[in-house]
Design a protein around this nucleic acid. Structure first.
Lengths: 77, 77
DNA sequence: GTGTGACTTCTAGTCCGTA
DNA sequence: ATACGGACTAGAAGTCACA
């Protein structure tokens, strides 16, 4: 369970809870749609500035996106 | 008070509380001494992987390094 | 022990497309 | 609405010499 995996999982989870699309989130955070997609798929080593942008776009604290969770898919890796 | 500023401040603060040098921390985290220095001075837009390395080296949770604080120097900026 | 500028290598991040 | 690929540019990673 890396920080990156937690971030990816929480991002997707929070985003869909709020009912917004990757595209919309990307716009709000001023990032590219495909980039948000790759972050959620845990492919990217995101920087702190962009983590903050995404957190702000979702209206949460950056630490909320780093909260440990035990999503099954992470355990597989 | 950006996430970056919080991280920088907490890193330095926690590190010196533990009484270890930048050099020692860098070794523990497998990063370069001058890189740690520049992160503490808020010059670098550090990535999540390196944040995790530093947190692990200090024996704390990554979220502890993102805790908001009201250090005076940040207010000046 | 730390700060800093300069530098190269590597990847983050964008933009175009297809499915 | 999302995944994924290729090609590209911006910027982070990583190192060094010197103060």
């Amino acid at each position: 369970m890396t920080a990156r995996q937690n971030f990816a999982y929480n991002l997707r989870s929070l985003r869909s809870t709020k009912g917004i699309s990757q595209e919309r989130l990307a716009d709000l955070a001023e990032l590219h749609r495909t980039y948000v997609s790759s972050v959620e798929r845990c492919e990217r080593n995101i920087s702190i500035d962009n983590m903050e942008k995404l957190a702000a776009a979702l209206g949460v604290d950056i630490r909320d996106l780093l909260q440990p969770n035990d999503n099954p898919s992470d355990r597989i890796r």
